[in-house]
Structures are given as C-alpha cells and as structure tokens.
Design a protein around this nucleic acid. Structure first.
Lengths: 201, 201
DNA sequence: GTCTATACTCTGATAGAC
DNA sequence: GTCTATCAGAGTATAGAC
C-alpha cells in the first residue's frame, strides 16, 4: 500500500476504504468480494490492489481506523463530571454513532460475531483496559452514593447492547415498527428514561 | 431433500443440520463452506448434497427451524398474568436461550446484520404480528397502571438487545470480564434489577 | 446410500501493455 | 497509475461406480 502522498492517491485510498466499508459491513469479510468493492468504488479490481496489497489489508485498515472511533465515546466520560449526566451523555454519544456510523457498527458486529479473528488483540488489550479504567470510575461513583450500585461492566455492556442494536438490527427494528418512525429518535427518549431510573438508587 | 423416512436418514439429516449450525453461525452464510460442514458432520460433501439439494437449502432449513425457537419466549408471555412477573420471566427465558442456544442466536444475528436477505418475509410477517400483539398487551398493562408507561416496542427491543448480546458478543464480554466469570449468571441479576427499576413508575 | 472423480464457476491476485 | 488478460486455487454441484 503506497503511503498516500499525492492528492489523487489520498483520494483513491479514501474512495476504496469507503466502498470497502459499504461492502464488508453488509456481507462480512468472506461474503464481500473485491469485484463488489471495485464496482462501488468505481475502480478496476487490479487498481484496488495497487493501493492495497490484499483484500485482507483493506479490511485491516478499516478495523484499525474503526477502533478509535468506537472507543472515543467512552474515553470522553469525565471522572470529575456529574455521574448521572456523564453516563447519559455517554449513552447519547453511542446512539449518535449508531445513527451516523451504522456501517462501522455492523463491521464491528460482524467481526465480534465471528469470534473477532482479526481484532482479538485489540479487544483483550486496548478495549479491556479502557473498560477497566472507566469501571473503576463508576465504582467510585457508586461508593460515594452518587448513583445506584450495579455491576459497572454489565452496565457498560448494557449501553453497548442497547445503542448498537439500533444500527446492527436496523432491518428488524424498522420492520417491527412499520412506516413513519424514526427509531433512533425514539430510542433516545426511551434510553434516557431507562438509565435515569436504573441509576437512581 | 428426501423426506427423512428411515431412521438412518433422520439421523443423518440431523447430523448435517447440527454441523451446519456450527459452521454457519461461526462464519456466516458465505463464510461457511460445504467442506467445513462435511468435515464437522463426518460425512462426504456429495453425501451432504444427497440429503439437501444445495448449500442454500441447508441454510434455509436452519432458519425455518430457528424462527419458532426464537419467538416461543415471547409467545409464552401470558396476557392474564402478573405484568412485572411476566416480563421478568420473558427476560429470563430469552437469557436462557442465549445460554443454551448461542449458535442459534448468532445464526439469527448474522442474518439480520446482513439485511435479512433470507428472512425478510418472516420478520415483516410473523415476527411483527407477534410483537404487535404483545405490545398491545403491555400497553393495556400500562393503562391499568400496573407497570410504568414506556414505548412497548422499544421495551421489547431492549430485552432482545440485552439478552442476545451475551450470546452474540460472547467473545467480547469474556475478554472484558477476564477469567473466572459466568457472564450470563451475572447478567441474570443485573437484568432483574434493571427491569424491576424500569417497570416501576 | 455413499464414495471418488471431476466439471464448472467464482474470486483473489499477478503480468504486462499503455 | 490504470487497464486488459489471465492464472491458480477454492468452492458448489454433478456423474457415475459400487
């Protein structure tokens, strides 16, 4: 993969990655083909492989980029802030990701669902470390009596599950709700109520 | 696919379906190969195709079987029961599915994640109808003041998301918790608390 | 009913002209 | 840098012996 130096290289790399995100997130790694990605990108298949050495490399580039986006909302939770507000803001940020980056959410879900074959290290390392850190903060908040006592890790899991559900299971959510709904807008109110009640001792 | 008449046909069909569930749930439809399924089943590849006409047919057989298993816990929610107990029992049944049938959960997740290409009709039909029916029951419970007012469909989504997360994202959950945990046992307590607080007005 | 051998298609990747 | 042509391997499915 040539380091993107010229403007055209920069642009093509981005075009490829965007097309790859579209296809990988919809079909998984194995289900996606270079032909599809090339078609979406508007480039020839050999041209893809001029910018990236292999299909695997394209996928890896996406995952690496993804991890930061994915962890940012939790990183931004301020240990010195007001506990309830911090947690609700975290929920809102995660929900924003489901709204604005549903393809990234599905890429991530595909990867975990299949046993995280290409992300195991990041999950056991970076992700776990961040959760440990923030779980400690939440535990302190609970000991100070500022929010209700709960298992902080399962609390975090619940936020992941409830927010990502609206991106990952979008088809099902829309099918069940029928026409004329904005699932994520509705979810925002629902989750606000849920966490307000849950965190009140 | 020969209707399983003899005992050996019955047995082989089941062996194949079990092997297929193992492989499809771990790798998705495209990611799974007949070679893998044959290997797990301990049969030859052509022998698989003696029992089922195609890879697609094996997958379809699994999905059809799956839907009933999947909807049963919600079907069993009794409109005449005690509201809080009925909903908590539903949560527990769904969590039992995540514990006892994680492969089925991942098969379902893979299918929805990729836009439900082979299940759309069932989701828009059977699934939606059941949710509509039970949402009406919940709405009545709310109007009678027996549980807190909430959007009943998002309440159901929350139960799906929170329980299936422990099967679908098992790798991540275990990586974050580290050794010496029983994720689903812990989740049971957490979710009991969550829904007790949520349903209390 | 089950196997070996094989046909045929798809797909990731490369060669080489321009 | 981009394209056409093509290779090699994998994968679904079938033919036909036993």
């Amino acid at each position: 993969m040539p380091r993107p130096r010229t403007r055209i290289q920069q642009k093509n790399s981005e075009t490829i990655l965007d097309a790859a995100l579209e296809v990988f997130s919809a079909h998984g790694f194995r289900g996606a083909t270079l032909d599809q990605i090339a078609e979406v990108a508007g480039l020839s298949k050999p041209n893809l492989l001029y910018y990236f050495p292999s299909k695997e490399a394209i996928h890896q580039a996406l995952l690496t980029e993804l991890l930061d986006t994915w962890l940012d909302p939790l990183r931004a939770m301020d240990p010195e802030g007001e506990p309830r507000a911090e947690i609700l803001a975290y929920v809102r940020r995660k929900l924003d990701l489901s709204r604005d980056y549903p393809r990234e959410s599905r890429l991530f879900a595909n990867e975990i669902l299949q046993g995280a074959p290409r992300m195991r290290a990041a999950i056991e390392g970076e992700l776990k470390a961040l959760v440990d850190e923030k779980a400690a903060v939440m535990t302190r908040w609970m000991e100070e009596g500022r929010i209700a006592r709960l298992d902080p890790r399962h609390l975090i899991f619940s936020i992941w599950a409830l927010t990502q559900h609206y991106a990952d299971f979008d088809v099902q959510v829309r099918a069940v709700l029928g026409e004329g709904h904005d699932p994520i807008a509705e979810a925002e109110g629902f989750l606000e109520t849920l966490y307000a009640r849950l965190l009140t001792a």
